[in-house]
């Protein structure tokens, strides 16, 4: 049973670490592309926009992407900070892991989730919003491409649309992953509260 516990702990920790790390990368990309599109849309440097309204709309969306990207990075970095310590300790230790060490890591992850519960919920919103904005931006790029006169502009619009639509879809997927993680830990928190009642009753421990 303990081997299973360690394997599940390891898989879960690695999966969450990868999710937050990728999320950080996508946040950085969102910020970078957001800034790039703001500059190109507002100043009209690339000359892609067929109309001023469309240019302004793209600029506004891009600014939102930039802001979301910034929040995205900050939240991801804070979540990542809590789990890197545990992951580092885990990687340093060779198996078999003593039961008390494993329990200590579980307690730390539990504390990390309690501390970051709101931030993870916020992350789901950011990913959904960010994903939606990037999808909208991708659609705008497609419209720009269709309206463009020359091949070069059309090609550049298709590339921009591809990038934005990919980021948008992946971001929405990330939001689902965060929901899945949150659901698992909420269940564990509920179970902990029930178990603590058992501890309190069976051992006669009750701190006022």
């Amino acid at each position: 049973m303990k081997d299973n516990t360690i394997m599940q702990f390891k898989n879960e920790l690695n999966s969450f670490f990868m999710l937050v790390l990728l999320n950080l990368v996508f946040g950085a990309m969102a910020m970078a592309f957001g800034m790039q599109f703001v500059v190109s849309s507002v100043l009209g440097l690339n000359g892609l926009q067929p109309s001023v309204v469309l240019r302004a709309l793209t600029g506004a969306f891009s600014l939102m992407c930039f802001g979301l990207g910034l929040m995205w990075i900050l939240s991801s970095a804070r979540i990542l900070k809590g789990i890197t310590g545990i992951r580092r300790e885990y990687r340093k230790r060779s198996e078999p892991v003593p039961g008390e060490i494993l329990t200590g890591w579980i307690v730390r992850l539990m504390a990390h989730y309690r501390e970051n519960k709101k931030r993870i919920a916020w992350m789901m919103i950011i990913c959904t919003l960010g994903g939606s904005v990037f999808l909208a931006l991708g659609i705008l790029n497609v419209v720009q491409g269709i309206g463009a006169g020359d091949i070069t502009t059309r090609l550049l619009s298709v590339i921009a649309a591809g990038i934005n639509l990919t980021i948008g879809c992946v971001s929405l997927r990330f939001s689902l992953y965060f929901q899945k993680y949150s659901a698992a830990w909420d269940l564990r928190l509920q179970e902990t509260v029930r178990s603590e009642e058992t501890l309190k009753k069976s051992m006669g421990i009750d701190k006022e």
Partner: peptide, 22 residues
């Protein structure tokens, strides 16, 4: 006794509840 019971309860959280995986 407390340590053993606590350890058992907390490790069970990972055994019985379906975990998260990418």
């Amino acid at each position: 006794d407390y340590i053993a019971l606590f350890t058992e309860i907390y490790q069970k959280l990972f055994d019985t509840i379906p975990g998260f995986r990418l």
